[in-house]
Computed example of a mutant assay.
Amino acid sequence: MLLHFTKMHGLGNDFVMVDLVTQRARLTDAHVRELSDRRFGIGFDQLLVVEPPRDPDMDFRYRIFNADGSEVENCGNGARCFARFVRDQRLTHKNEIHVETSGGPLVLTIQHDGQVRVDMGRPRFTPSALPFDAPGDQPLHELNVDGEVLEISVVSMGNPHAVLEVENVESAPVARLGPSIEAHPRFPHKVNVGFMQVVSPSEIRLRVFERGSGETLACGTGACAAVASGIRQGLLKSPVKVHLPGGELSIEWPDPEASLIMVGPATRVFDGRVALN
């Protein structure tokens, strides 16, 4: 069968969007892996699927699949693309869109300037929320990685994140430590790994090694996790500008009891059709 899709990106973090509200298809893990191949398929970091909601109070159900075929709970850059996609496809005329994910509900707002504002909910730091094998909640945890003891913070933004502060993101050992931390046995469901350089209390630089996809040009939930961790440790103060390899995001978290807010762009690249084997 022919599957209609749209290619989009959020700061270079690229997605294939599939509308399963007006068309029908059964996407398997093998389909996702084939389509994600950048030489023999379409190529993407994640596949995002729009489905009818299960909850009548929601507008859509939002599902996220990594390039390796694994389904994950949340994706911040993808959420912004999701909002633009359902509007562009005329699946809704709302500016404020309520979506259900396996990581919890999200509220997406398309602003007048075209940027998308995402209410990401409250960060969760308890190890069981990720999950992470640790005796209790604390700002920093020691993690032994190949004989090297690192200090990391752990944050759930609906999906699991480990954040490591570094002096310089350009020279940070992302390729070496990223895979080792991602698959560390203390993270039974694996983890996204952020390498954060604090520039000032209102500005950071960040690289993220994403679970199931490797290093990407941008990670929205990773930016949120890094800022939440930095604010909790007293290193940052809301709002915070996050510089990622693909561009900038603005993160607001003025109060520990408040939702964390992410604002950034979403870009449509092209539409196409692909044959599913």
Rank of each mutant, 00 (worst) to 15 (best):
D119K: 03
F85E: 15
S70C: 08
N95R: 14
V86H: 05
N77L: 07
L130R: 04
L177N: 08
H161E: 09
V116K: 03
L164S: 07
V163Y: 04
I97V: 11
T101A: 12
R176M: 14
T92C: 02
D119G: 03
V155Q: 01
A134H: 09
G121N: 04
S171H: 11
G78K: 00
D88R: 15
G147Y: 03
I152F: 07
I110Y: 00
E100K: 06
D133C: 10
T126G: 12
D137K: 10
E170W: 05
I181R: 00
G76F: 07
I181M: 05
N77Q: 10
V99G: 04
S153D: 10
L91R: 02
E182F: 06
H93I: 05
I181G: 06
R80P: 09
L143P: 10
G136I: 02
F132L: 13
E167C: 09
P173V: 01
P173Y: 04
I110G: 04
F125I: 12
V155M: 10
P135N: 07
D133A: 14
R117T: 12
V155K: 09
E100D: 13
Q89I: 03
G121D: 03
G78D: 04
V166E: 12
I152D: 02
P135Q: 05
D137P: 06
A175K: 11
